[in-house]
Design a protein around this nucleic acid. Structure first.
Lengths: 261, 261
DNA sequence: CGTACCTTTGATAGAGTTCAAGAACGGTGG
DNA sequence: CCACCGTTCTTGAACTCTATCAAAGGTACG
């Protein structure tokens, strides 16, 4: 018998659907309301205005006047596309991907609600990655040219800086960690990000395949699958396909930090 | 007999000493001139003002009023130190380093003249890396608070964006490339950066040890050493300790791109 | 409801690490 | 100027982790 009991909770609770109760629902198929106010968005604290005092958050209110839906499997933008806007994930889930000259590709990130995409395009005004939706998603379009206010620019720099720090973490992961540690770090990171968005830290639905996880972590999909099984058998997590329940967060943390053996 | 002929050139030509003829020399031991003008600095095109039209480069002129010397082995700043300034490398060579909880560390970058350091500190106002000088060096201190002008902020964002793109490249390297490809990519990258600074693309002196290269590339120092030997024997480069001469750039490029042989 | 994709698991192989020892280098002080 | 010492580099041998190849089982989507 699987560690995950029944299948019922899977359909009734989808932590990755990040529009919560209290959210103004979108009228699907209808043009999005032209007046979109960051200051009343429930994602504001994990998104671009995050951390600013309420008064300053209002500076963002005039900024976003378009939202864009991206269906599962479609891309928000591609390598070489002209850059003119940043995008904030409103709902859904994305991956970013780079392709090497010889065709090998790598997933360079997974992106959930509130995260800002496209900052790689600022330097050359062309995007350097593909962004692909892993489920039906929606983004807020933030025209870069309208981010003129020094306060807004400062805030953007903070977000970019956070991204630089995040990248350093990925470099550590890819450069120094063994497979087991990488997957543990990955799961803990996802968990943290769910918590920051008001979700349970210990149960979620992966939107990406083993292949995509492996690509991101510099591992083969088989290794990822084997590690999930090993963590499952060790009682650290309960896995059933894309359903993950973390049973022992301290033990997962202990996987990091214990170098050889 | 070694592929590198005599030892004489080693002392007469040090490409990594990046203050070129025509540079106003510093009076060692004396206080640095309080008026430091980016617009007349020979590094301006590879540094923060790079790419801006001359008139706008002058905006940076009032910005830097301090320089700071850092001796070989000393650190410019450390993890956890308060952030208040960015630093631009004026001369010398640095590495950045992160340390994991269990003590394992990784080199996350090498930094040469014109490169801007410290942007990781913007988001939390604390640094997340150590920066260590690999030779006696000097940096320009750029107080972050004085980067208020929107034009300057835009320029900083470009530099940060470039850094994000660079990090993506490192992630590709660590995530998808085999050892041989990593080292080839590393050498070609160094070569390019020297060219951008007016130096020969094919001959340079490494400032870092095999251990540091390995750490950066996610390899052991032994593997790095073996690869240098292999490239040497294959006629791609001439190595003698830290002296590198690239003999066959196209062949090095071909090492990238040929996946599994 | 069928098919294509995704996942799991086993067996084998290979790339790179680790351990170890000797060689070369470079800075220091006599 | 030379000898010495610590550090860095090179090279070999054995081992280990992870990739690759292969095949069966499960899921989900159209």
């Amino acid at each position: 018998m699987s560690v995950l009991e029944s299948r019922a909770p899977r359909t009734t609770r989808l932590p990755l659907t990040l529009v919560r109760a209290g959210d103004a629902p979108h009228r699907a198929g209808k043009a999005v309301d032209a007046r979109i106010h960051c200051s009343v968005c429930n994602l504001r604290e994990v998104c671009l205005p995050g951390g600013l005092p309420g008064a300053e958050q209002a500076l963002f209110d005039g900024l976003v006047y378009t939202r864009k839906r991206v269906k599962r499997g479609e891309s928000l933008y591609r390598v070489g596309t002209a850059f003119d806007s940043l995008h904030a994930v409103r709902s859904g889930f994305f991956k970013s991907r780079m392709v090497l000259a010889d065709g090998r590709d790598q997933v360079t990130g997974f992106h959930m609600a509130g995260e800002v995409l496209g900052m790689d395009g600022i330097c050359t005004e062309f995007h350097t990655t593909d962004i692909v939706a892993l489920e039906d998603s929606e983004v807020c379009v933030i025209p870069y040219a309208r981010l003129a206010e020094p306060g807004l620019q400062r805030q953007l720099q903070k977000v970019m800086s956070r991204e630089l720090v995040r990248d350093q973490g990925v470099m550590m992961l890819l450069g120094t960690m063994r497979a087991e540690e990488r997957l543990a770090a990955f799961l803990l990171n996802l968990s943290q990000r769910f918590v920051a968005r008001g979700y349970a830290p210990d149960e979620f639905h992966l939107r990406m395949t083993r292949d995509e996880i492996g690509s991101y972590l510099g591992l083969s999909l088989e290794t990822v699958s084997r590690l999930f099984s090993r963590f499952h058998d060790g009682g650290l997590i309960a896995v059933q396909q894309k359903h993950i329940r973390i049973l022992d967060i301290p033990a997962l943390k202990a996987v990091l930090g214990r170098e050889a053996n």
